[in-house]
């Protein structure tokens, strides 16, 4: 009796093997490389996605944080990952392109298949509420008379590019005071240690709502739905267009079948009402599907290439 049972078990095990080997994707958890530290904007985006994907994807997405070198370590890990569909990852701009322009990256954009962009966080020019500058014009006029300091997140980042764009568009020379991260920038602007800050909307949203800071201009081509009363830099006569975006990509070379399954999952998560509610509070959602995301990244690369040529970092 016992022996029969054992044999049955062995037979069942052997029979199940072919299914295990040739089962449909996905048959094991998918690793999701996050190219930043736990707790940051990219990490939160990935964790929210992973949480809501549970409903629609038969296997879990397992987050693996690979922070460091402005995302380069995580981007490289993604580019070099096995192309079996069990590793995907995050990209964020402008870093992913800036590393290529600076010739430090051991990857190119061709190493990735962009899946979906989730977040675009527009750049904003901000001043302390007590600042005498009310418009971009005031700032530019003052900058022509005396030396002004502007807080940025450091060389090679979107804030620095934005500052360079404004300097060029207005023919002024605002000096960049680099900070490590947005907390330092916020403190510098709120504490009045710099004349102006180049930041991203999501970073200063609470301070804007409580009236502690003023936005002189938003760096989108047109006014945004969320801030209809805030003028763009462009409409004030200065061509400053910049944002920082976050999305997902797979390593180039994964099969069509895998891409289709992933694409479907992303679409379902994006349509999920609960996800939308969670994302609304946390993420500046701006969804681009694969082809649109790819085009966006390629265009960005030409911008960062030009920026590096002019003022390398």
């Amino acid at each position: 009796m016992k022996r029969t049972f054992l044999w049955c078990a062995v037979a069942a095990f052997l029979l199940s093997l072919p299914f295990a080997a040739f089962g449909a994707y996905p048959e094991k958890p998918v690793t999701l490389i996050v190219a930043s530290e736990p707790g940051g904007g990219t990490d939160t985006m990935a964790r929210l996605f992973a949480k809501f994907a549970e409903k629609y994807f038969p296997q879990p997405f397992v987050i693996e944080n690979r922070p460091g070198a402005g995302g380069q370590i995580g981007f490289e890990a993604l580019a070099r990952a096995k192309k079996d569909g069990y590793t995907i990852g995050t990209l964020y701009t402008p870093h992913v392109a800036a590393h290529i322009s600076a010739k430090r990256a051991k990857y190119t954009l061709e190493d990735f298949v962009p899946l979906f962009n989730f977040v675009s966080d527009p750049g904003v020019v901000v001043v302390n509420a007590a600042s005498p500058f009310k418009t971009l014009e005031d700032l530019v006029t003052a900058a022509k008379d005396k030396k002004l300091n502007g807080s940025t997140s450091g060389p090679g980042g979107d804030d620095f590019f934005a500052l360079t764009q404004l300097n060029e568009a207005a023919g002024i020379e605002i000096k960049s005071v680099p900070e490590k991260g947005s907390s330092g920038q916020k403190a510098a602007v709120l504490g009045g240690h710099v004349d102006v800050g180049f930041m991203n909307w999501s970073q200063i949203k609470p301070n804007f709502q409580s009236g502690e800071i003023r936005i002189l201009g938003i760096m989108t081509p047109e006014r945004t739905a969320e801030l209809p009363d805030v003028p763009t830099c462009l409409e004030q006569g200065y061509r400053v267009i910049s944002d920082s975006s976050r999305g997902f990509a797979a390593p180039a070379g994964v099969s069509e079948e895998v891409l289709k399954a992933l694409d479907e999952t992303f679409r379902k998560v994006l349509d999920d009402a609960e996800f939308q509610a969670a994302a609304k509070e946390q993420l500046e959602m701006n969804v681009l599907d694969g082809p649109a995301y790819k085009a966006y990244l390629e265009e960005l690369l030409t911008v960062t290439d030009k920026a590096f040529e002019k003022e390398p970092w």
Binding site: S183, K186, Q282
Partner: peptide
């Protein structure tokens, strides 16, 4: 500074800010 100004004093506080925001609790006087 995290609760009043939205400036996290260190990396744990920064991660905690994510936890506040996800519940729609935006740092500031409110």
């Amino acid at each position: 500074p995290l609760l009043t100004l939205g400036i996290p004093g260190n990396s744990v506080a920064a991660a905690l800010m994510g936890g506040l925001l996800i519940h729609g609790l935006i740092p500031g006087p409110e």
